[in-house]
Simulated assay, not measured.
Amino acid sequence: MPEGALEIDRVSKRYGDVVALDEMSLTVHGGEMLGFVGSNGAGKTTTMRIALGVLAADSGEVRYDGAPVDRTTRSRIGYMPEERGLYPKMKVSEQLQYLGELHGLPRADAVRSANRWTERLGLAERREDQLQKLSLGNQQRVQLAAALVHDPSVLILDEPFSGLDPVAVEVMSTVLREMRDQGVPVVFSSHQLELVQRLCDRVGIVRRGSMVADGTVEELRSSGPTRLTVHAPEAPADWAEGLPGVTVESRENGRTALRLDDTADDQRVLRAALATGPVHEFSRERPSLTELFRDVVTEETDE
């Protein structure tokens, strides 16, 4: 498979007075998985639909492998919408074959691909069932098969893990890793941030239609606020109050959780703790992706 990059370059979209996207930019390279996260209404689905050509952008450009995305390029994109979009009364095998042919596969190739993906995703025994007779989790697997049946060069998935049990999550995670390892740019949105942190090479956090943070999980965690846990059992309750750049977040059983901004000196914090007596723990923690996301949402609410 090709290893071109999918680029969304300063894309904007308005609906009357409502700004859905404000110069949204992101790049997903071949062989890379990007997690696209943000609160509801932040612009994730709109971005994906513009990349697919379902919506037209007011300005900006979508490119694949350096060239503007056109109808031919879009036929090479595998897309999994958040809303199930398949035919409920159609048999699983028939609609996967049909979708493969719509993407340009010869019928025999579409049949082989449909059989391969139903086998791979644990649906072989349900091929002749109508979609509506499957559980919601299995319907989600069929949606993934529909996105993969034409051997796509780009994979875009909107909340692919929604409603899946742990076994199905692991199956889907493995398939997405395999596609990435074959050189496919993979981008998916999700509210399951622990899963995003575990799977993705990079994460983009979107707020109010713009990308506000983009980088590897480690880069984003390193850029977030530093937290310290200090266990000083003999320290008074207010021992850390007034230290420059330090915010006391909680205190329980002699353990104090502190948040440090860029001006804080952790060695000064340590000296202040030692001045109260023995210090049994002094540990630095980096924020999780969930904490970073919460900070972004809080900032949005404050604004």
Rank of each mutant, 00 (worst) to 15 (best):
F36H: 04
L96G: 08
N138Q: 12
D58F: 08
L105A: 11
T72H: 05
S75E: 13
G35W: 08
D58M: 14
P106I: 00
V28R: 08
Q139H: 12
D151L: 01
R141H: 03
S113K: 04
I77L: 00
L102P: 02
S39E: 15
M48I: 12
G137W: 02
K91N: 08
A67H: 13
T46E: 07
E83S: 07
D70S: 01
V37L: 07
S39M: 13
T27C: 14
T45H: 07
Y87L: 07
D109T: 13
R63M: 02
S25D: 03
M33K: 07
Q130C: 10
S59N: 12
R107D: 07
R49V: 01
V69L: 06
Q95G: 12
P106E: 09
A124E: 07
R71C: 08
E128F: 00
G104F: 14
E101D: 11
M33P: 12
V149T: 06
R120E: 10
L131Y: 14
D129L: 04
G35M: 15
L105G: 02
V111L: 10
T46W: 01
D22R: 13
G122A: 10
A51W: 03
G43I: 02
R84Q: 06
G78M: 00
T47R: 03
M90A: 09
Q130I: 14
T47A: 12
V92E: 15
D129F: 13
Y98R: 10
S113R: 04
Q97D: 04
G43V: 06
Q140Y: 01
Y64A: 01
M80S: 09
L148V: 05
L144T: 15
L96K: 01
A42P: 03
S25I: 06
E101Y: 15
D151K: 10
L136H: 14
N40V: 10
S75H: 15
S113P: 06
L131C: 09
T45V: 06
D70V: 10
V62L: 05
R76M: 03
D65W: 02
G35F: 08
D58P: 10
R76Y: 06
R63W: 03
L55D: 04
E83Y: 09
P106F: 00
L144S: 10
A108T: 01
K44S: 07
Y79G: 09
M90C: 08
S75C: 15
K89D: 11
A114M: 15
T27I: 06
T46G: 01
L148G: 08
T72D: 13
M48T: 04
R116I: 01
T73A: 14
L34H: 15
L121A: 13
A57D: 04
M48F: 12
L26H: 08
H150K: 04
V92D: 09
R71K: 04
Y79I: 06
E61N: 08
G30S: 01
H29S: 14
L99A: 03
T46I: 06
R49N: 09
Q132H: 13
V92S: 11
Y79Q: 02
R107W: 12
S113N: 04
S25V: 04
M33G: 12
F36R: 00
